[in-house]
Nucleic acid binder design. Sequence first.
DNA 1: GCAGGACATTAGAATTATTCTAATTCTCAC
DNA 2: GTGAGAATTAGAATAATTCTAATGTCCTGC
Lengths: 146, 146
Amino acid sequence: MSTITDKHAALSHQLKACDVRPTPQREVVLKVILDKRDHPTADEIFARVKTSMPTISLATVYNCLDALVQGGLVRSVNFERGPTRYCPNLHPHAHFHDEATGSTHDIDLPAALVGQVKAILPAGYDASSVEIIFRGKASVQPHGTN
Amino acid sequence: MSTITDKHAALSHQLKACDVRPTPQREVVLKVILDKRDHPTADEIFARVKTSMPTISLATVYNCLDALVQGGLVRSVNFERGPTRYCPNLHPHAHFHDEATGSTHDIDLPAALVGQVKAILPAGYDASSVEIIFRGKASVQPHGTN
DNA sequence: GCAGGACATTAGAATTATTCTAATTCTCAC
DNA sequence: GTGAGAATTAGAATAATTCTAATGTCCTGC
């Protein structure tokens, strides 16, 4: 039982399940996002992927990320003027952007609150998604991630 | 009573009240944001300002916008990968981004809901601001703005 | 009323993030 | 195994924003 092969098979399977055609590049991109769940930018992902796949190009990283977002395997988040960041947490959650450190924390979002927030929309508005972003100062570390 | 002078005096006063040193450029930038409250980008603001002040530079528009945001006279909003947009609505409100038309609608935010949303933050998190962004389809026009 | 220092403006270059292009290569269904 | 469609690649192109350095403007203290 090769661990490498198992991981590969698992990732490949996960991609297929989401209608994303599995390729080595997509598997590695997904893997690095899952491995270090710290909301990396495309550039950071590119750097990490290059260590195990030095021939990958930045354009491919962008393409893979788009495919993964489309397939619902990762979420993209944007803060202010900064570059897009990617997040493997698929539970409904808000983001807290720590202004002091620049780090991003996931905040669990109770289903009830999502309903209440969507309820403020007047008739005629049909929201497919809601994004809640806090900005401020955190005196705790993100739980296991960043 | 010159209308032009009155408007100028009013804008100048508004800037001073917010600790933003009044300059002709800042007044015109603020004026165009207040006149057409449609969440314009810096480029759009630049184009509008140039009609009344053809010598202004884009860098100045960015500087003025930063000053106005600092002074709390306008809010900046970011959607996905798009350019930053500016909003003169100072009441607490969420944004609805219509995916079909690309237009942005302000959604009034009840104070109670803001409290409930902030209440989901665990101890150790101190949010200075919350931004709520909906994405979806609107079958109504924004009320007077866009 | 005016000199001086701090702050604002300008044009253009530079930077950053992202997308596009066109040629090559890979994946999967048959 | 083959072929059609999709993915990858490197590099150029674009878009949004910031930086730089020179010049101009505002307002305080005299």
